[in-house]
């Protein structure tokens, strides 16, 4: 299977990673190589096999829907690149 530049551009946009136009071709070739190798999975018969979605067979536990933490705004914001008035600050999104 081979991935073209347009596909790489679309995936990079979905992943929110800016990829320079000049790198698209090389990335496409590299990922195509990896996917060619992955293609071998098609040979495995998985009819009537239930997907395994986690690393354990234990049942996920339930807990009360209750607040267990909070009131630590300063700690939450301690590593923010930009914070203002107790909030994370981001570039303007609404004109």
């Amino acid at each position: 299977m081979s991935l073209d530049k347009a596909t790489i551009r679309r995936v990079a946009t979905l992943a929110r990673i800016e990829l320079p136009e000049a790198e698209l071709e090389a990335t496409a070739q590299q990922l195509s190589g990896i996917f060619n190798w992955i293609e071998q999975l098609r040979e495995v018969n998985t009819d009537n096999v239930a997907p395994m979605s986690g690393g354990t067979d234990l049942k996920l536990p339930w807990r009360a829907d209750a607040v267990t933490d909070g009131g630590i705004t300063d700690k939450v914001l301690a590593n923010a690149p930009e914070a203002q008035d107790g909030f994370f600050a981001v570039p303007k999104v609404v004109e």
Binding site: L3, T7, I8, V11, A12, L14, A15, I17, T27, L31, I34, I38, L41, R42, V44, T46, V49, A50, P51, M52, S53
Partner: peptide, 25 residues
């Protein structure tokens, strides 16, 4: 990029779901 691709619309079943089934095997 690989992860985004295998989870993207139209490829999820062919890659991600398939891999989860092989993982079960």
């Amino acid at each position: 990029l690989i992860g985004t691709y295998v989870l993207s619309a139209g490829y999820y079943d062919a890659y991600y779901l398939k891999a989860q089934k092989v993982r079960a095997l």
